[in-house]
Simulated scan of single mutants.
Amino acid sequence: MTRIIACALATLAPLPALALSCLPHSVEATYQRAAKAEESYVVVQGRLTFDASALPKGGTIGINPPEETPIRAQISGKALSEGGFDVPFDQPLTLNVQCFGPWCGSAEEGDVLAFLERKPDGAYALESNPCGGDLFGSPKPAMVDKVIACFQGAECTPVR
């Protein structure tokens, strides 16, 4: 009888919660990944604009949003060079919001620090995923300074 009760209770117990495990999202780690990539990247500090209603909504167990949602966007600001963020930059881009199962990347209009991939055709793309991707919203001055330091060859070890 005890076994029957134990089995019955086990079937009523909640299933383990699914969890998404990400490495810490840091400008140092993103900078290093972009620097090592075969693709070409431009780092821009500026204002991102897009239609926020096009962002995917996170799913629920068994109902997942699309794996990728491309959204037309615009970024206006300054690109990184040897002198810091001092090169005027105003370009359209594709904001590619990715979902891993029910978890989706996010983005907000406003001030950003963005690692833009420059495609072979000259177009720009920006990836946001549930673990952060290449986008940092409302960057703090220390983040901006760190990216400049990384670009200039200073210590660029990701924070763990």
Rank of each mutant, 00 (worst) to 15 (best):
M1F: 14
M1G: 12
T2N: 03
T2A: 08
R3Q: 06
I5Y: 08
C7E: 13
C7L: 13
A10H: 01
L12W: 07
P16E: 15
P16S: 14
A17Y: 09
L18Q: 13
L18E: 13
A19N: 02
A19L: 07
L20M: 06
L20A: 04
C22H: 06
C22K: 05
P24E: 00
P24G: 01
V27F: 09
A29I: 05
A29D: 11
A29W: 09
Q32R: 15
A34L: 09
A35Y: 07
A35K: 09
K36Y: 10
A37Y: 12
E38M: 00
E38I: 02
E38L: 04
E39I: 01
S40R: 14
S40F: 10
Y41P: 07
Y41I: 04
V42K: 12
V42S: 07
V43C: 01
V44Q: 01
Q45D: 09
T49A: 15
F50E: 03
F50N: 02
A54V: 00
L55D: 07
P56K: 10
G58R: 12
T60R: 14
I61H: 08
I63M: 10
N64T: 14
P65E: 15
P66R: 15
T69R: 12
I71V: 03
A73K: 06
A73M: 05
A73Q: 06
Q74E: 10
Q74Y: 05
I75F: 09
S76D: 05
S76E: 14
K78H: 11
A79M: 03
A79L: 05
L80R: 13
S81D: 12
S81R: 08
F85L: 06
D86R: 11
D86V: 10
P88H: 07
D90V: 04
P92R: 15
L93A: 05
V97M: 14
Q98K: 15
C99H: 14
F100T: 02
F100Q: 05
W103C: 06
C104D: 09
G105K: 11
S106C: 00
S106T: 14
S106Y: 12
E109I: 00
E109N: 09
G110M: 13
A114Y: 05
E117N: 11
R118S: 08
K119Q: 15
P120V: 02
P120S: 01
D121T: 12
D121N: 15
G122H: 00
G122K: 07
G122R: 04
Y124G: 03
E127A: 15
E127Q: 13
S128K: 04
N129G: 11
C131S: 05
C131I: 01
L135W: 10
G137Q: 06
P139E: 06
P139K: 03
P141R: 05
P141K: 13
A142D: 06
A142H: 03
A142N: 10
A142Y: 05
M143I: 11
M143T: 12
V144A: 11
D145W: 08
K146M: 07
K146P: 03
A149C: 02
A149H: 00
C150I: 07
F151P: 04
Q152R: 15
G153C: 06
A154T: 01
P158Y: 02
R160H: 14
